[in-house]
Every structure is written in C-alpha cells, then in structure tokens.
Design a protein around this nucleic acid. Structure first.
Lengths: 197, 197
DNA sequence: GCTGACATTGAACGAGTGTTCAATACTTTT
DNA sequence: AAAAGTATTGAACACTCGTTCAATGTCAGC
C-alpha cells in the first residue's frame, strides 16, 4: 500500500496535470481550444495518456466541470472559526477576492456555463451545483438571521446570487472595481435586511 | 435600381437565412455545433453559398455577434413617445420581457460572451457594444434625473448592468420568476434613487 | 532474473472540418 | 439572341479531430 501510495501519487501527478491543462486551455481559448492533442501538449504527456486517464473527451470535460463546481461550493462552506454573521459577511466578500476576479477563473466559469447550455449532460451537473450553492448561501443567511423562515432565506439567497453572477460576468467585460464594491454592499444589504421587508 | 432592389431582396433572403441558421445553431449547440456544413443544411442552401456570402467562418460569427449587439442596443434606445421617467422605467422592465427571457436569446448571448472571451477579435466588438449600451442607459438615467452629473449617471448605469447581466445569466440556470421581478425592482431603485446617496 | 501489472508512447484510422473552385443555373444588359 | 454578370451548386483538397491499439517502459513481488 505504501508503494501503491507512491504509485498513486505519481498517477495523480500526471492525471491532475492533464486536468489542469484542460482547465487552462478552456479558460484561455474556449472549448474549441480544448483538443485532446492540445491538452496532451500543454500537460507535457503523450496523446494516448489523456485517453488512458479519461475514457472520453466528454469525461475529461465533466471532470473539469466538477472541479470548478467544488471550488465554488467552498465559497459558501460553513467556517466554524467565526460567528454566524461574520461567516456570512466573509462569504459575500469572498466572491470579489483577488483570486476569484482573475480572468482565468471568470473565463473558465463562463465557458463551463456555455457548455452546460449546449449539452444536457453538463447541464445536469451544473444545475445540481447551482442548487447546492444556493442551499449553502441560504444556510449562512439562516444562521446569521435565525428569525427568518427557510423559505425567506432561499429567497434572499436567490436575489444575492443574481447580483453575484452579474458581478462575475460584468467583471469580464471590464466594469470598474468601484461598481463591484457597490454591488457587494448591495448583497450585504439584502442578506442583513431586517426581518419583514 | 428597381431591379437591383429585387435582386438585393433575394440576396438578403438567402444571406439572412444563412445568418439566422448560424444564430440558431449557436444558441442550441454552442460554437462546436456551428460548422459551415451544419449552417448550410439548416439554412437549406449548398455549402458553397455560405462561403459565397461570408468569406470566413470568422466573418459569419462576427456578423452574428453584431446582429445580437444591435438588438441589445435597441433596449436602451430613446423613445420619444413617452416622458423621460417612463422611458427609463420601460427600458429597465424590457430586459425581463417574455421574448428576451427565452432560452434561445439568453443562450445566444452566453455563447457570444464566451466567444468574445476566447478570441481577441470578437472581444473588441463585444466591448464596444457593451460600452454603447452603458452609454445609452446612462443617457436614459440622465434624462430622467437631470440633477445628476454625467459621471453619476454612468455609475448608476454600471450598477444596473451588473444586476441585469446577473438576471440574464441566472435565468438560464432556472431561478424563479419572483426573484427576477425583485431584481428588476432593485434596478429601478438604483435608477430613481434621490440625488446624493 | 522473471513475471505480471500498471504507465506511457506514438502511429494509424475514419470521420468531420474550413476553404477553394470549376461547372451550372438564373437574370439582366446589350 | 447573344453576352455578361451574378447566384448557386457540390466535388475535391489538405487538415484536424477523437479514439484505438500494439509496442515499450517502469517497477514491485516472487
């Protein structure tokens, strides 16, 4: 098992380098830029190895989609190290953190959304991740404002997500930083609004 | 010239059927679904004719991009038939009109954004259209609220666009109609806010 | 050292791609 | 009626694509 661990480690190294290469190409050149050969070149491996670890091109893309979705879910993951209100506030501000507002990440998200729109299989994965994100955000709201019904929390989460998606998308088009900050303030306003509006 | 008009009409018929086919394929299957042969099949013409009217595949896509951009610009075009405040309000509500929130249109916009992100040439066209949209919206705000400085109008327009883009994108993921309506109310709130905030 | 299991390679295949172009149909001009 | 101009066709070209596969490399266990 110890040897297998090393083995697995090596495997993981190559396999994740392939996945990373696919993510990189997707964010830079869109789906048309992601050919099995380009991925192999970018990862520094032979063409055959890509098909060794990922049966299909489809399953490679699926892996990429899941990888990004997981990353997104972390944004609304509970964080026991701070109080409920602070947790919510931090989650809302995280979406404008420096590492998220990079072209690489935003572009990746955009291309994955476009893929999900064109293909039913990808769409399901995406819709599920979207729902879990909404749930996570609603849970944070619920913790911070215990007086709200769960339905009201989902409602606020939905409104917040609209603005967050808008921020991500518009950031790609080069809207100024100040507008992003005002939008974040708007999400906080929704989240922390007094009980019945 | 009369004859040429007929001629041009026929030309337009075939040429615009080709463009329409390209738009349709793009919105349904993404850029991978738009091959010259698929466009020809969808438009009911021979393969060669697509290259006759559009030199490149690139110029066909460019035409599609411009077509959608023009359509978007109409949303914030001045409408002399009603007062300035009503004009602004109608423009803000138009983005949630039935014909805009269709999957076809939203999906098309998404794929074109993705294309613009992957290709420098498309990006320029898109950025320019975005800027003109922002300008148009700011002008509507300025007319409705003459007391605001132009800079303040641009600021409000930027904030509104963030939410509008979020609505378009999130509508694709299936957020409920109620959330869309609340988001529209939010854009009106920004637009019609009293002078200094 | 040998064996067997896994990792890795690159050549090969058939299908699909964008583009070109000679040939044909249709209209208008002379 | 002939000529000229434009519209339209589909075959052909040179590529690239995803996938398969036999061959080779690597290395732990016997």
């Amino acid at each position: 098992m110890g040897t297998k661990a090393v083995n697995t480690g090596e495997q993981m190294d190559r396999q994740s380098r392939i996945l990373e290469a696919a993510l990189d190409l997707l964010s830079r050149h869109g789906i048309s830029g992601v050919s099995m050969r380009a991925v192999a070149r970018e990862a520094g491996v032979a063409l055959g190895l890509v098909n060794y670890y990922y049966d299909d091109k489809t399953s490679l893309i699926r892996a990429a989609l899941r990888r990004v979705d997981e990353h997104d879910l972390l944004l609304v993951a509970p964080d026991p190290s701070s109080g409920p209100e602070e947790q919510l506030r931090q989650a809302l501000r995280r979406v404008a953190a420096a590492d998220l507002l990079t072209t690489r990440y935003l572009s990746l998200r955009l291309h994955l959304w476009a893929l999900a729109q064109a293909d039913e299989g990808y769409a399901q994965i995406n819709a599920e991740a979207f729902d879990r994100y909404l749930d996570g955000l609603a849970a944070l709201v619920s913790n911070a404002q215990p007086g709200l019904s769960w339905e009201a929390c989902r409602e606020r989460a939905a409104d917040i997500v609209v603005i967050q998606n808008g921020m991500w998308l518009t950031a790609l088009l080069g809207v100024d930083e100040a507008s992003i900050q005002r939008s974040i303030a708007r999400t906080e306003q929704i989240a922390f609004a007094p009980l019945q509006e």
